[in-house]
Simulated scan of single mutants.
Amino acid sequence: MQLDAMPRGRDLLVAVREDRIDAAVAVQFKDAMRQVTEGGPARVVLDLSQVGFLDSSGLGALVAAMKVLGPSRRLDLMAPTPAVQKVFRLTRMDTVFAIFPDEDSAFGIGDLAHAG
């Protein structure tokens, strides 16, 4: 499971470099997320822009990754593909995760550009 972690201000951006998060890779995803987020900042933003398929095992792996962060840290999602966005809507997990359409909105870049 290929994940790239990059600091973004006080947050951590984790990009999934796979086209699927499903039963075949769910355990590897959870392990990789644990490794890249361990001891990290209070907010992790997961870039799903390359993920074209997410099944129930993948959804469970996302929830598990959120729980590993603990109550004092947050996992937000960014740029899900239409198919993945549909899974979140159908399962109502879009009410559990904050989901941002792109990096600018996830990190408030547009807001900074218009500030004072």
Rank of each mutant, 00 (worst) to 15 (best):
M66V: 08
F107W: 06
E103I: 06
V44F: 07
L46C: 08
M78A: 10
H114P: 00
D4K: 10
L12Q: 13
A79W: 06
L48R: 14
G60W: 05
I21Q: 06
D47K: 14
A64C: 10
L3A: 04
S105C: 07
T37P: 07
R10L: 03
L3Y: 10
P71I: 03
D22Y: 04
L90Q: 09
A24Q: 10
R74I: 15
A64T: 14
A32E: 03
R74K: 15
D76S: 10
D4H: 06
L3I: 00
P101C: 01
L54V: 07
L13I: 02
K67G: 00
T81A: 08
A115L: 11
A32N: 09
F107R: 10
Q85N: 11
M78N: 02
L59N: 11
S56T: 09
G52H: 13
A61H: 10
G70A: 07
M66N: 03
D19H: 11
S105A: 13
G108E: 01
L59G: 04
R43V: 15
D55K: 00
A23M: 12
F53R: 04
S105V: 10
S49M: 01
M33E: 08
K67V: 04
M78P: 01
I99R: 14
D47T: 09
E18K: 01
A32Q: 04
P80A: 03
D55C: 00
A79N: 02
V84A: 02
P82S: 05
L75W: 14
M66H: 13
G70F: 08
G40P: 10
F107M: 07
R20Y: 10
L48Y: 13
R73D: 01
S105M: 08
F100R: 09
Q85G: 07
D76Y: 06
D4C: 00
L54C: 05
A64M: 03
K67W: 02
V44R: 15
E18R: 06
I21A: 03
